[in-house]
């Protein structure tokens, strides 16, 4: 049935994480409804908005990192291109920051 989607484990894990996040946000929202507030982002946001903005920024960070990985390897004279886990960690940190202070 879902063969045509050619699933791989990392992608499955990724989407399960997203689904869990949405479920978690829903539960959190029911337990304690969010309020609109203004952080360092230019617009007033709710928790859901911040999650979205955070994820979007995280995606852009990872993309930029992948794009520039070759350059990084040149500048720092590394044997191989740096691992994507670095940018992943950075993006998670940014996501957390946006969620807390955005």
């Amino acid at each position: 049935m879902f063969d045509w989607m050619v699933w791989t484990t990392p992608v499955a894990v990724f989407f399960i994480c997203i689904a869990l996040m949405l479920a978690g946000m829903t539960v959190w929202e029911i337990k304690s409804p969010t309020t609109l507030r203004k952080g360092f982002l230019p617009i007033a946001t709710t928790r859901g908005d911040r999650l979205f903005i955070g994820l979007l920024i995280a995606a852009y960070i990872n993309l930029a990192f992948v794009g520039l990985a070759g350059k990084f390897a040149e500048w720092l004279q590394l044997e191989q291109e740096p691992s994507v886990w670095i940018s992943f960690a950075v993006s998670i940190a940014v996501l957390a920051l946006v969620m807390r202070k955005g």
């Binding site: 063969d3 045509w4 989607m5 050619v6 791989t8 992608v11 990724f14 989407f15």
Partner: peptide
């Protein structure tokens, strides 16, 4: 979702 799957694989045939 499928596009994400495609983007991480080299698909020669199914």
């Amino acid at each position: 979702m499928t596009v994400v799957n495609y983007s991480l694989q080299d698909i020669i045939s199914p």
